[in-house]
């Protein structure tokens, strides 16, 4: 997908590796003083009237954009370092010979931390199948890896709070585990293209390279350049739309069609969300604003998960190795899981 195929510039002078560390205290200071600072800027310096929709929108934008960008930079950096301890090859090794249910749990969990991009979905899929990892376990990985990513978690944490981030991660993990397990039970091996089974994979024989902590910091830095340079525009655009919604859309406007009483809003959200491919960066700020206007939590969650977790480009890539019936099964099982989560949360809250 769009998230993977740009070229990071690795040829930076070494000294730059320490810039992120120097910026962390600065980031904390800005983060702490952001709220009063933006208030001061909007009401005192710009002298805007607190009650107008325009002021509400401007304040929302000026506060949320730097907040999310700071969080994003810090967390992507840390996650980049953590990810350098994992690789698809190591994950495969860990999953080999694991029974179905335990395998699903492990695959979904490793899916969060293993560096993965959809453009290597095919070699990864073949690599897993070849080493005898059950299809169900492989799918748990393929559901969790795109759905629970650091960009989504940062935005949820920054805009909704840690509870929402945790809720999203936990339910996403559950969906990945259960859908993989269900797919595993359905005996779908015959829907994998025959040539996949014929491929002979060699043992992975990468030369042992000693990875120093210095290299891992570099990995964190590369991740920041790579990810932030790609998603910032979506974040700014998403927050801008969110700000407009925040200022101009009347209270409870969303209640009638995204509210909890409209039961059909959950399946509709999933139906729209699956073919719609957007990254978390653009979609979450808008949803946050909509939630404030009476949209139901379960509906918003369902929309988010189906947009981020299931995407048309990924299905097209996977179509090369699995046949259409399995793609349909895969999407239906995961979409059903997302809908159950949506209904559940609309019912609880």
């Amino acid at each position: 997908m769009a998230e993977c195929c740009t070229i990071p510039d690795n040829d930076k002078p070494d000294k730059r590796k320490y810039i992120p560390f120097l910026l962390i205290p600065l980031a904390i200071v800005i983060y702490v003083f952001l709220d009063p600072g933006v208030d001061y800027l909007v009401y005192n310096i710009l002298g805007l009237d607190k009650t107008t929709p325009l002021t509400k929108a401007i304040r929302f934008f000026l506060y949320d954009t730097p907040k999310v960008m700071i969080l994003l930079t810090v967390i992507v950096f840390v996650v980049g370092i953590i990810r350098s301890y994992f690789s698809p090859e190591k994950t495969r090794e860990a999953l080999e010979g694991k029974p179905l249910f335990i395998g699903n749990i492990m695959a979904a969990t490793l899916g969060i931390v293993t560096p993965f991009c959809s453009c290597s979905a095919i070699p990864l899929f073949i690599g897993f199948v070849e080493s005898g990892i059950p299809l169900g376990v492989t799918f748990s990985f393929l559901v969790a890896a795109p759905m629970i990513n650091e960009v989504a978690l940062v935005l949820l944490f920054g805009l909704f709070g840690w509870q929402m981030a945790l809720l999203y991660a936990a339910t996403g993990l559950l969906i990945a585990i259960v859908s993989g397990w269900v797919i595993g039970k359905l005996k779908v091996e015959r829907f994998v293209e025959e040539w996949v089974y014929e491929i002979k994979t060699g043992d992975f024989q990468m030369a042992e390279v000693k990875v120093t902590f210095h290299d891992r910091i570099q990995a964190g830095y590369t991740a920041v350049v790579d990810i932030v340079s790609k998603v910032w525009i979506y974040i700014v655009a998403g927050i801008a739309v969110g700000a407009a919604v925040h200022g101009y859309v009347p209270e409870n406007f969303m209640a009638s069609f995204m509210g909890k009483d409209a039961w059909w809003s959950v399946p509709l959200a999933v139906l729209i969300g699956v073919p719609l491919y957007s990254n978390a960066a653009g979609i979450i700020p808008i949803l946050q604003a909509l939630l404030g206007k009476g949209a139901a939590l379960g509906t918003a969650l369902a929309f988010m998960m189906s947009t981020i977790g299931l995407s048309l480009p990924e299905m097209i890539i996977l179509k090369k190795v699995i046949k259409l019936p399995l793609i349909i099964i895969f999407v239906s099982v995961v979409a059903t899981g997302i809908m159950i989560v949506g209904f559940l949360f609309n019912w609880i809250y």
Binding site: I7, P8, N10, S87, P88, E89, R92, P115, C119, S120, P123, L124, I126, G127, E130, I199, K200, T201, G202, D203, F204, Q205, M206, A207
Partner: peptide, 23 residues
Amino acid sequence: MRYGVMTTPALVIDGKVKVAGKL
């Protein structure tokens, strides 16, 4: 896949995988 690599790009020198999954 014969090299057992699951992430591209990969660099192979004289039949040995030296780098996989990153630039």
